[in-house]
């Protein structure tokens, strides 16, 4: 994590042009004015002093102040984070549920019409850019369900129903891509397990088909599916950044894109660090989950 923080910090400093120059672009200030502002923001100090004070701040829970607005970065992130979290979580739930169910249906009906129907849908879902899908959904919602509140974000704590009606479309758009990937993996994986000897044995000893499916096939075919889901969660975080723009949601993505445009170092650093941290955590959880699902896996 320390290495990550150093990489993030130095990488962000490499951005050409600095916040002060950008701020002054509109009203051309003199170079003295610029220097004064740099001094006040602490941008004139050598990089290691800046890094030290930033790292020290984070350890005490202080992410520094935005160079642009002067607002507390931690506070801004704290406000935006739940929006992205909700979006990613809903997307993951929708995508996994949809993908696993359809994948099993497709595999157990291999070669029949249900399979022929589900497979192309999966291919389409993988190929459709989710921000375009989002725009189309907005358009369709405007045309056919004008009474639905699809824009104008409200926190869940204030008005749960209104919040869900705003979040449902972006979550669906996000979940569809995940669902397609999960569906394809589930189908392949279930088919592979179905052809194994122990499944034939279970059937031969007179086990009923549903319990063969649950106890033997699913349990053994879920591991690759979970790998896909956890890899895709990263993709979902990326996707939510784009979808937040489509649906005008005040989440991390919007904060990040604005901060990149304005060279707001503390903000970019803070968000990057947070996302990386979440990512490391997800990878750790995945390893633990493997262990729970498959006793043969040893934690290294």
């Amino acid at each position: 994590m320390l290495v990550v923080s150093l990489i993030v910090f130095s990488a962000v400093r490499l951005i050409p042009g600095d916040a002060v120059d950008i701020m002054f672009q509109a009203e051309a200030g003199s170079s003295e004015q610029r220097d004064v502002l740099r001094q006040r923001l602490g941008l004139d100090r050598p990089w290691y002093v800046q890094y030290g004070s930033w790292l020290g701040g984070i350890l005490t829970g202080n992410f520094g102040a935005s160079l642009r607005t002067g607002m507390d970065v931690g506070g801004e992130i704290f406000r935006a984070f739940p929006v992205t979290l909700e979006l990613v979580m809903l997307g993951t739930i929708i995508g996994s549920a949809l993908g696993i169910v359809l994948g099993i249906v497709a595999a157990t009906n291999r070669g029949r019409w249900l399979d022929w129907l589900i497979q192309p849908v999966g291919l389409v879902g993988l190929s459709i850019p989710n921000f375009w899908l989002g725009s189309l959904m907005l358009l369709a919602a405007g045309l056919y369900f004008p009474q639905l509140h699809v824009v104008g974000f409200v926190p869940f704590s204030e008005d749960p129903l209104r919040n869900l009606s705003v979040m449902i479309l972006p979550s669906l758009a996000l979940g569809l891509t995940l669902g397609s990937a999960v569906m394809r993996m589930t189908r392949t994986s279930v088919l592979e397990v179905m052809s194994q000897d122990f499944v034939r044995t279970a059937r031969a000893k007179g086990m009923l088909e549903p319990s063969v499916l649950w106890r033997h096939i699913l349990r053994n075919s879920l591991i690759p599916v979970i790998t896909v889901i956890t890899i895709q969660i990263g993709v979902l975080i990326g996707g939510s950044i784009v979808l937040e723009r489509v649906f005008a949601l005040p989440g991390l993505g919007r904060l990040l894109v604005t901060a990149i445009g304005e060279r707001d170092y503390p903000m970019v650093q803070g968000i990057t660090l947070l996302i990386t941290f979440i990512f490391v955590m997800i990878n750790l959880l995945t390893d633990i989950l493997y262990r729970v699902l498959d006793p043969r896996v040893k934690l290294g």
Binding site: P16, I260, F279
Partner: peptide, 18 residues
């Protein structure tokens, strides 16, 4: 590789500039 590619690309663009 463990980092999602769109995110990584966004971060690299953040460093290099749009």
């Amino acid at each position: 590789f463990s980092f999602p590619s769109v995110l990584l690309a966004i971060f690299i663009v953040a460093v290099l500039g749009p």
